[in-house]
């Protein structure tokens, strides 16, 4: 059965306040090499069939808000 893995991330120009907090915590634990952290979402879709045009449509219509987010996806299997 094919699947699609969708990655949704805040646009790079936007402050990711949750990500910044995570980066701060990593630094606090001694991981000084961490410069920044950005938190995104992974949405795993189990599919009957994969039509990439429809996947794009799903991303634009619901999975990502393109005012603030970028999306990427990969087809698996």
């Amino acid at each position: 059965m094919p699947a699609v893995r969708v990655f949704v991330t805040l646009k790079p120009s936007l402050l990711d306040s949750a990500g910044r907090t995570v980066a701060g915590s990593l630094q606090h634990l001694g991981f000084d090499e961490v410069q920044d952290a950005r938190i995104g979402k992974v949405i795993h879709l189990q599919m009957e069939t994969v039509d990439e045009a429809r996947v794009q449509e799903m991303c634009k219509k619901l999975l990502a808000n393109t005012v603030i987010e970028d999306f990427q996806y990969e087809v698996i299997g």
Binding site: L10, S17, T21, N65, I68
Partner: peptide
């Protein structure tokens, strides 16, 4: 309303978390 497209823009996590 912002998500529906009736209003422009979007709302993000507060700056101070």
């Amino acid at each position: 309303l912002a998500e529906s497209g009736l209003l422009p823009g979007a709302l993000l996590r507060n700056k101070n978390q």
